[in-house]
Structures are given as structure tokens and as C-alpha cells.
Design a binder for these strands. Structure first.
Lengths: 121, 121
DNA sequence: AATATATATGAACAAATATTCATATATTCA
DNA sequence: TGAATATATGAATATTTGTTCATATATATT
């Protein structure tokens, strides 16, 4: 049972409907695009980041106010803000030593809405 | 510097704009809802699952055809399909020993579209 | 210039999670 | 009934990732 190398033509995956596999393979977006898509949704896949985005949906806020709102320490929030910044979901402006964060555009709202719409049914 | 416990009234988080913090706290959706939202997006935050969903977007498929399409082994695909099933993103029907999976509804398409729309700019 | 404060960040640690391997289950067919 | 096949699943492993802690940086204030 351990040496199943005898039926190893190219790979050992069984295919039942070769036509469908071929068709779908052709229709699939390029690897990189799907990777980027997963990376984007990964950002939304964390409660802390969701909360931060949700807060910014209501108001522009500085780091320590976000931390206070979520009841988390400043460092954790700052780390997550960096991730949100990198994915261009939030933008920031500096006023003295205070940094204000806000949503970069309305994509966040739209993605949120689709998400909620799936949950609530 | 190490013992900053002197200013420890209730918690040690600094608040600059108390009015904003109070306002946003009131406007935030309930904890559980945000948790569910993050859980949903977590599902989309994995390349394998994104690929599976993307394939199913094109056609209903059985497990081994999905595995062949993605170039992954059957077990890995099956594990991910279980997760997708649990979150009600896919449904399945059984025909003999073959199990066919398809998208549960059109939420996947809509969420994908919003995601792509953010990536492509 | 020295101190206080807001934010950022590197490293360590802990927790979550995806894949693989082995195997179980269910169904078909001889 | 027994063999073959499609799928499911538990356990182990490896990787990823979030938080914490300590500390660095930048700005304001005295």
C-alpha cells in the first residue's frame, strides 16, 4: 500500500470529468490574481482589524482613541493599522504627534455590506 | 520608567478625544456580529479556498475534479470543502459515490467582485 | 536641553490553521 | 460477498499570524 508509484503517470489525481476540468482550468483567473484576492480577504479575516475598520467607518480616529474604543493596547492596534495601511484600506494624516487614521475609500463599506448580507440569512 | 502603575486608575489606555470614543463605541455593531463577519472573511482569506470557490463559480464539480483542477491532493481539497460547507458558501449533492459541489448562492460572486474591484486600482 | 507623550516597530511567544498521511466510510460493480 | 473507488476525517506537523513587551522615534512643552 505504501508504494503507490506504479500508477504514477504524471500525477496521481483521479479525474472523472476531464472536459469540465479542462474548461474550468481555462476559465480560472491567473494564479497571482487569486493570491492577491485571498490576501485582501485575509485582512478582513481578523476581529481586531474588523473592529478598527468598523470604528473608522464612523469617524476618523487617532491611534490611542482606537485602542481605547477596542479596549486593546496601543501596540497591538498600531501593528494592525500598519497592515491596514499596507493594503491601502486606510489612510492617515499627522497632526503634531497625533496620527489620525481614516478609511481610504468606500470599498470597505461595500465589502462589509456584502459580508453582513451573507451572515444575516 | 518600568513602574508606570501610578497612573493606573481603571486601565492604562490614554484617550485624547473622549467624545469621539464614546460616540463610536455606541455606534459599533455588537461584538458577536463583528466576530461573525471576521470569521466569514477568514474563509475567503486562503488561496486554496479562493481557488475552489472560483472554480465552482464556473461549474458544479466533484471533489476529485476540483483536486485535479487545482493540482492538489484529494484530502486537502476535502478538508477545505468541509469548511466551505460549514459556512454555507457551497452546497453539495451526492450521486452514487461521487459528491458534486456548487456555490450555495450568489453572495460569493458579489463578495468576489468587491474584492477584485479593490485590488484592481 | 530635558521631559513627557503619541506612535511605530523588532523580537519572542502563543495560538490558529493548512497540509499531509493514514485510514475510515460509503457506494458500485463483478 | 469481495474488490475497487470516491470521499471524509483524525492526528501530526509545519507554517502563519496576532499579541505582548521593550524600546525607538518624533513631536510638543517646560
Amino acid at each position: 500500500m505504501k508504494d503507490n508509484k506504479n500508477n504514477n503517470d504524471v500525477c496521481e489525481i483521479t479525474v472523472i470529468h476531464e472536459d469540465i476540468v479542462d474548461k474550468v482550468k481555462k476559465l480560472m483567473p491567473e494564479e497571482e490574481k487569486l493570491y492577491d484576492l485571498a490576501e485582501l480577504f485575509k485582512i478582513f479575516g481578523d476581529t481586531t482589524r474588523i473592529k478598527i475598520l468598523c470604528a473608522l467607518l464612523k469617524s476618523e480616529m487617532c491611534v490611542c482613541d482606537i485602542a481605547a474604543t477596542l479596549g486593546m493596547n496601543q501596540s497591538a492596534v498600531s501593528h494592525q493599522l500598519r497592515i491596514l495601511k499596507q493594503s491601502k484600506l486606510v489612510k492617515h494624516r499627522k497632526e503634531g504627534k497625533v496620527v489620525y487614521y481614516s478609511l481610504a475609500d468606500d470599498h470597505v463599506i461595500k465589502i462589509f455590506d456584502q459580508g453582513f448580507s451573507h451572515i444575516e440569512e
